[in-house]
Design a binder for these strands. Structure first.
Lengths: 204, 204
DNA sequence: TTATTTGCTGACATTAATGTCAATAACTAT
DNA sequence: ATAGTTATTGACATTAATGTCAGCAAATAA
């Protein structure tokens, strides 16, 4: 009388993919609080022990999530940087784009959940970027002028904290300032910010 | 034979003070995760139901905490702004100081815990600041020049997201960039940032 | 002293999360 | 077919948090 219960059986790689993608979606949607194994399982149409089977523990899943988000960010930044005419002023929109689609928010939220995981995973990304950008700035400098290494580093630091701050609190702060929220407003800010940086680059 | 158990009996105001201050300390030290009623109670030397007695629920405590932190931030910013020679470039250090001592971190963390509480409590703070600053910039402008209102707003927005981003991720990002962490490094960045903004103000 | 109010606590209830495990079903190889 | 491997699940164990409550004790007033 008892029906045989049908099951989907995936390859481990596929199962991990499914879980990670579902989890990323949920983090982006609900913030760091919304990362309950039950919820992920429900959304993915699986049972929650399956997550533990593939990732060992909740912490293991978190590590995998941050690792994935950090890798994605790095890929996007490197892609933006390898454009022929790259400069942080001219291509700032691409840099912010690299943080878009909830990516920075995900990373930031994951950093809140697991303060030690994010640094480990993002380590040295910024250093690589600083090296590349600085070389470009030096090459682009007028023959007589010099570009201080420190200036490049702080420039990147500013863009990084601004991008994170914008991703986390941009909308809230705009609302608090009485500025209309939304994508268009955020874009206007990016444009303004790019101008500020271009100004800075231009004068030395 | 049974000893009478001695108890401390406070006024409601004193009890709330004690609880709020202990909680603020713990948030600053351990992040948003470290806000368990048991922990607060243990640290304050009271029992955890006392917190519920005075604040109704954990959510009530969180609201009180964000309200307090937001009020503190506003006070510091207003104090910085009412200095006679206030301008966001010249006094940027004071603005960042207003965010220091874990205040921005507390606010940011509380915002993560209770995304709706912070906006309600910080509403219009930035608008006030924008009004004041814009008036000053207009007054300080050279007779022929004009200062766009939007420019002032974006300037404040940048400082705000940078201050939050710095408070939340500054040290992590500096480490990730291979820059030495610590107060001195953070100060050097503030100085550089102030210069950037002063440059911008000077050219229009 | 006695009565009254209420700040305060210990013990318990409730809820909600992670983590464990034996059993089951879907593939693969023989 | 048959056996073996393992992805998958339901039921359960465990843990850890918030919230409830009856009663105790410290002030204040009569």
């Amino acid at each position: 009388m008892s029906e045989a219960v049908r099951r989907v059986r995936r390859t481990p790689a596929d199962a991990k993919r499914l879980i990670l993608e579902t989890a990323q979606t949920l983090v982006a949607r609900n913030g760091p609080q919304g990362l309950r194994l039950q919820d992920i399982a429900g959304e993915a149409g699986i049972s929650h022990p399956l997550i533990l089977h593939h990732f060992g523990s909740r912490a293991g899943l978190m590590r995998a999530l941050t690792r994935e988000a950090a890798a994605e960010l790095k890929d996007r930044l490197v892609a933006a940087m390898t454009q022929p005419d790259y400069s942080i002023g001219a291509q700032l929109d691409q840099v912010f784009d690299a943080f878009r689609g909830g990516l920075a928010q995900r990373l930031a939220w994951l950093a809140v959940e697991d303060p030690d995981g994010a640094p480990a995973n993002t380590a040295l990304i910024l250093r690589e970027i600083a090296d590349t950008l600085h070389a470009r700035r030096v090459a682009a400098a007028t023959p007589g002028g010099t570009v201080a290494r420190e200036d490049t580093e702080w420039l990147i630091h500013l863009v990084a904290i601004a991008a994170f701050g914008e991703a986390m609190y941009g909308d809230q702060l705009r609302r608090s300032a009485g500025i209309a929220a939304g994508e268009e407003s955020a874009h206007r800010f990016r444009t303004w910010f790019a101008g500020l940086i271009r100004e800075h680059g231009g004068r030395r």
